[in-house]
Amino acid sequence: MTSLLPTYVNLAGLSHGAELNPQSAELLRQTASLTAAVPAEELTVARRRRLMHEAQALLVGTELKPLVSSVDELIHLPGRSLPARLYTPDHIGSDVLVLYFHGGGWVIGDLDTHHASLQFLAQHLGMKLLSVQYRKAPEHVFPAACDDAEAVLAWAHARLASWGCKRLAVSGDSAGGHLAAVAMHTHAAIPLAGALLFYPVTDMQFANRSYTERGAGAGLTRDGMVWFWGQFLNPQQPPSLLRANEDHRIVPMRQVWLQRPPNTVIAAAWHDPLYDEAVSYAQLLSAAGAQVIMQSAPDMAHGYLRQSIAVPAARVHVLAAVHAFLALI
């Protein structure tokens, strides 16, 4: 158990990157080639979703079969039911249930696109993990996904005993990290064991350093992120960026914490336009009194959690985040 004093780790070393890992870069190139092969006029939301599933085959690999079972469930909420998947490792070393929100720009991810990486994550956390498929844009625009994340967090907290757990933590990657951040702020009165956020979306500053320097590189790009934001907010009637930027449920960097945030690990990738906002959000939580560990992956791009089975270097960074999280809770 850690002390109650806020801490911020590794801040001094966060301004430097390294060459993108060659194996990771090759997977990103192959994934990008799947999209590039589709004519622009055929690149619909449905096609993008199918492409993410096709890319998943490149990321699974043939080694490291986790000792984790999974079962699909439905979460019944007022007016809707959300698919979910419960992961149970063969060895459970904690009383924590991890509530997980998948990435995919609020648009293209689902339970299956993150299945292998969440098996790996649950195994090494030694915790039960519940992955939730929230309502996605553009069919369900803001605030639908945020409403779902907030409702599921309260729902899970009330039912912890049914899973044999005593504590609740939140986690997510990319847009899922955004939803985890929104949910834990909305329910700041619910005691959380901690938060584990992989390269979360926390801001809308397209001219910052990481967007400017790395926004056209491998993996997620500035143009891609602008497209995701447009789908999430409403592609038919987009609000002004100024108005959207003032809403703390859209931009977690606008959060005001009246209570101490949960202990949090933020794992960022240097070759990612979201890098700077991950660092800024870590600073925001730390200033609000949380214990925060910032993990920087200098040779990785956005999405390296999903490469953890196929790319040894990505696996090292994921395990570093896991070990930091276990130390915090």
Rank of each mutant, 00 (worst) to 15 (best):
C146H: 08
A18V: 07
L20V: 00
M204V: 14
H76A: 11
S131E: 09
L86W: 06
D72P: 05
L284G: 00
Y87D: 04
R243D: 15
V256M: 12
R48L: 02
A37W: 01
S70F: 07
G104Y: 02
Q291P: 09
T186Q: 05
R159L: 02
N21V: 00
G172T: 02
H271N: 12
H271K: 11
M52W: 04
W106M: 06
G172V: 02
P39S: 01
L130T: 08
N234D: 15
L197T: 06
P312M: 01
H323Q: 14
R315N: 06
S171D: 06
W227N: 08
E213V: 14
I309T: 07
V132M: 10
F206P: 01
I108Y: 04
A36I: 00
Q231W: 07
A287S: 14
G224A: 11
P39V: 02
A36N: 10
V96M: 09
A116G: 10
H317E: 11
G126N: 10
Q30H: 03
E150A: 11
L192N: 04
R50Q: 15
Q56T: 13
E63S: 14
D148V: 04
Q236K: 13
L305M: 12
E246Q: 15
G194E: 02
V279M: 07
L328F: 02
R306T: 12
V68K: 02
P239C: 04
P6E: 05
R249T: 14
I329R: 13
Q255R: 07
R47K: 12
A36D: 15
S117V: 13
N208R: 08
E213R: 10
D72E: 11
V265S: 11
